[in-house]
Simulated assay, not measured.
Amino acid sequence: MTSERWPTELRLAKDKRSLRIVFDDGAAFDLPAEYLRVTSPSAEVQGHSPAERKTVPGKREVQIIGVEPVGNYAVKLVFDDMHDTGIYGWDYLYRLGAERGEKWQAYLDELAAKGLSRVRAR
């Protein structure tokens, strides 16, 4: 797998609630853990087709507890809810950063339409 973009910095925030990624073209993104969790590229979230994609509620307080390299093309993020099956390629992370506003609003709209919340049910 090759990527058009290459990260020059990848840093987990001390509070484990965001991941900073800087690319060789100068683009820099601070991606919240919640956003990364609900947009996980895993089959568990994305399904095997667009019709199978899931809206993941209750992740407002999620933290990233691990960042593991996958070859030289991606990272696997481990979240404190034990989700660890998404492989985040460099291009995917770049798109998540560049399209964050639209993707986040679409997620919020999906939650509202389905009567779901960002807050975990107790």
Rank of each mutant, 00 (worst) to 15 (best):
K76C: 13
G47Y: 02
V38L: 05
L96F: 09
L93S: 11
M82Q: 14
R37A: 08
E110N: 09
E34L: 12
D109H: 05
P57K: 07
G66K: 07
L96T: 09
R17D: 02
E4H: 14
L77W: 01
E61G: 01
L77M: 00
A113G: 07
Y94C: 12
L31R: 02
P7H: 15
S18A: 11
S117M: 00
Q46M: 07
T39H: 12
L12V: 05
L10D: 11
Y88W: 09
F79M: 06
A28L: 10
R118H: 08
K16T: 00
E9T: 15
L12P: 05
L10Q: 10
R100D: 11
G66L: 09
T85D: 15
L116S: 06
W104H: 14
M1W: 13
S49N: 11
K14N: 06
L10R: 07
L108I: 11
V45C: 01
E61T: 02
L96D: 13
S42N: 13
E44D: 10
G97Y: 03
P32R: 10
D80Q: 04
E34W: 13
V38D: 04
Q46F: 00
M1H: 15
R60H: 09
D84K: 10
K14Q: 05
V45N: 02
F79V: 05
D25H: 14
T39S: 10
A28V: 13
S117R: 07
W90D: 15
P57Y: 06
H48F: 11
G86D: 10
A33K: 04
L108P: 05
G47W: 02
Q46A: 02
E52A: 07
L19P: 07
R17M: 03
Y88F: 14
G89S: 12
A106L: 09
K16D: 01
D80K: 03
F29E: 08
D109F: 03
V119G: 00
R20H: 09
Y35P: 13
A98P: 10
W6S: 10
R122D: 09
R37T: 08
L96W: 08
K14W: 01
Q105G: 03
A13L: 03
V56P: 06
R95F: 05
L31F: 06
G71P: 01
D15N: 08
K76Y: 05
L111V: 07
W104P: 09
Y92W: 05
G71R: 02
S49E: 03
G97A: 04
R60N: 09
T55N: 07
R17H: 05
S42W: 12
R118T: 14
E34C: 14
N72D: 03
L36Y: 11
A51P: 00
R11H: 10
H48D: 07
S18F: 11
D80F: 04
R120Q: 06
L31D: 10
M82T: 15
D25N: 15
I65E: 09
H83M: 06
R122I: 08
G47K: 08
V45R: 01
L77P: 03
F23A: 14
D30Q: 10
A106G: 05
K76V: 11
M82K: 10
F79R: 02
